[in-house]
Design a protein around this nucleic acid. Structure first.
Length: 109
DNA sequence: AGTATGACGTCTC
DNA sequence: AGAGACGCCATAC
C-alpha cells in the first residue's frame, strides 16, 4: 500500500470522538481534491488497521456508503451510534454539525 | 498491457 | 431542478 495512504490514515485517526468527516474533505486536504475515490480505497485498505476509525468517514452528504464493506453492513452504523451519532436511513443526522474539518489538523489548529 | 470498476465529487446538459 | 457524464488515482481482472 502506497505511503500516501498513511497521510489519510493520520487524518482519519485524528477525527475526534463523536465526529465525522467526508472523503472529499480528506482528499482536498491531502491535495487530491478530485481524488475522493482514492480516499475510499485508502479507507478500504485501512479496514485492516483497527486503529483507523473508518466508520467516521462518510460521503459529502453524510451517507454511510461504505457500510457494506465493513465486517457487517450494520457495524458502521452501530459504531457511529455508539459514539452518540444518530444514523437514520444510512445517513448521519446533524451531519453538518458533527462534520469535522480535517483542515484544522492540516493547516493548523 | 489494456480495460473496467470503485467507500466520491463536481460540472454540464 | 433533476439527471447524466466526466475526472481523479489506484486496484482488479
Amino acid at each position: 500500500m502506497p505511503e500516501s495512504y498513511e497521510t489519510i490514515y493520520q487524518i482519519v485517526k485524528l477525527i475526534p470522538w463523536g465526529r465525522v468527516t467526508t472523503y472529499g474533505a480528506i482528499a482536498n486536504c491531502i491535495g487530491n481534491k478530485a481524488g475522493a475515490r482514492l480516499v475510499g480505497w485508502a479507507l478500504h485498505a485501512s479496514l485492516c488497521r483497527e486503529d483507523i476509525p473508518a466508520h467516521r468517514v462518510v460521503n459529502r452528504i453524510g451517507l454511510l456508503t461504505g457500510r457494506n464493506h465493513f465486517a457487517t453492513p450494520t457495524l458502521m452504523q452501530e459504531k457511529l451510534e455508539a459514539e452518540g451519532i444518530i444514523v437514520k436511513h444510512n445517513r448521519v443526522v446533524n451531519f453538518e454539525k458533527l462534520f469535522w474539518n480535517p483542515y484544522r489538523e492540516c493547516f493548523g489548529t
